[in-house]
Design a protein around this nucleic acid. Structure first.
Length: 434
RNA sequence: CGGGGUGUAGCUCAGUAUGGUUAGAGUACCUGGUUUGGGACCAGGGGGCCGAAGGUUCGAGUCCUUUCACCCCGACCA
């Protein structure tokens, strides 16, 4: 992509309604813009990041034997009446009517729809297990949307639902999905913890949350310094008094608070803030029973499916990457989430030699399938650098005044270091870095 | 859903107390010139139903009523 042809509206001004770094930088960097309370548009850069995260999630799920589907976003209200959630989910479900005055719901989640899809189609134990997922828009009419993409009303979520002939097999899938999730968050380049959790409103027994560690997280968790496990404070401290006392403490106070107990691995425990980006539940037969969804077992006896459900907040992850990786200048994308891996910056487009070299490198990197953007705008050096830092490309190749000595520079967004590389070596050096 | 706040140019905001020229600044944008390694400078220019509706008044961005939207704290959710 040529920057001169792209739609990346960056701004110097901080939007007045954004308080979190991810919200401010994603808006300033031209990734997203707000359409209404909890409603966001994804502009070209935001869309690229969203798609990159979506693709990684899809690749790992497909490898794990999950089947991608796409359910209708609009569902009949009757579906929710049958499971009883039309009442229990209350106002979070946004209801609409069609021209015939039939009532519909914008899907906040899809247990019912997925059970209906599988019911009467997977009719034998031989058809099981099954794991179906979709990456689709969800709508939850939150009482108070906030924090940009972290708590929107409309958001992109991956939701998977598995169907099993036995509880043992369901638990096997649950454990397998836990390791799949670890692969996903590791590939995204995130520092995360797996946290034992209460199962919340969806119901069921086993439940684990995946938290991205970030100071601005909404949840307080206890984490180990030498392994990947953590715990929600609700599960460690018994009484409400203890929990309330902890919730009242500021993050700074919590960080200095010592915990006497050790992790089972022997590591030290401490308090951290986390953003919940994934949640896996063992559902059992709650929904299959409620919706009378059965298969025939080995003895030809009808039995309700054992189920589990697995969620990942895709759009929330976009913001989470930035909450965890930013500095005062802007975004610092991880290599797997960066909208472009390399930004080639022409310092002065009036200098033919600079333009020539930039075009040559641009073509070569493109031919090598490197995600590369060419900053060919007629702007000054400082302007382009600030812009590159705000957006957060992992590497910027600066083609400028050092060209006189046969050199260009590689600017590392994370460390902000510039290293000089000779013109002859720049292509191979870039290929080595990415 | 309780409490608080804000709506004026694309964006960030003055102006409203005490009604009165043609509603301002910065930034962004356009033109020309200068500049060219850290969001440059000079000159000129375009851009506003002052959130919406109703009212008071000779006169409303400013006062009154209603309403809508958005933000913050909390509860809820996760």
């Amino acid at each position: 992509m040529r920057r001169s042809r792209s739609f990346i509206p960056t701004t110097k001004e901080i939007p007045s309604d954004a308080t979190l770094p991810s919200h401010q930088f994603l808006v300033r960097g031209g990734f997203i813009n707000q359409q209404g309370a909890g409603l966001y548009n994804f502009m070209p850069l935001g869309k690229i990041v969203l798609e990159k995260i979506r693709r990684i999630v899809k690749e790992e799920l497909d490898k794990a034997g999950c089947n991608e589907v796409q359910l209708s976003f609009i569902t009949p209200l009757s579906l929710w009446d049958r499971s009883g959630r039309a009442d229990t989910m209350g106002k979070e479900m946004l209801r609409i009517k069609d021209r015939h005055q039939n009532e519909f719901v914008l899907s906040p989640t899809n247990e019912e729809a997925m059970v209906e899809l599988v019911k009467n189609r997977a009719t034998s134990y031989k058809d099981l297990p099954l794991n179906l997922y979709q990456i689709n828009t969800k709508f939850r009419d939150e009482a108070r949307p906030r924090y940009g993409l972290l708590r929107g009303r409309e958001f992109l979520m991956k939701d998977a639902y598995s169907f099993h002939a036995s509880k043992e097999d369901m638990v096997r899938e649950f454990d397998m999905m836990e390791s799949t999730y670890k692969k996903i968050f590791t590939r995204l380049g995130l520092d995360f913890r797996v946290v034992q959790a209460d199962s919340g409103a969806i119901g069921g027994d086993g439940s684990k949350e995946f938290h991205v560690l970030a100071d601005s997280g909404e949840d307080t968790i206890v984490v180990c310094d030498s392994c990947e496990y953590g715990a929600n404070i609700e599960t460690i401290f018994e009484t409400d008094e203890e929990i309330d006392a902890l919730n009242e403490k500021s993050y700074e106070e919590l960080q200095t608070k010592k915990i006497d107990e050790k992790c089972s691995c022997g590591g030290e425990l401490s308090f951290k803030k986390g953003i919940e980006v994934g949640h896996i539940f063992q559902l059992g037969d709650t929904y299959s029973s409620a919706l009378d969804a059965k298969f025939n077992d080995e003895n030809g006896k009808p039995k309700a499916y054992e189920m589990a459900t697995f969620g990942i907040g895709i759009s929330r992850l976009v913001a989470s990457v930035i909450e965890q990786n930013h500095d005062e200048s802007g975004c610092i994308w991880t290599k797997s989430t960066a909208p472009y891996m390399v930004n080639i910056m022409i310092s002065d487009i009036k200098k033919e030699a600079q333009v020539e070299l930039a075009e040559e490198l641009y073509s070569k990197l493109q031919d090598s399938n490197v995600e590369v953007i060419l900053d060919d705008r007629k702007e000054r050096f400082g302007f382009k650098m600030k812009d590159a830092e705000l957006i957060g490309f992992p590497y910027t190749v600066i083609i400028g005044k050092e060209l006189a000595n046969g050199n260009v520079q590689i600017f590392d967004r994370k460390t902000k270091e510039k290293i000089s590389v000779s013109v002859d070596d720049i292509y191979s050096k870039m290929m080595e870095l990415i």
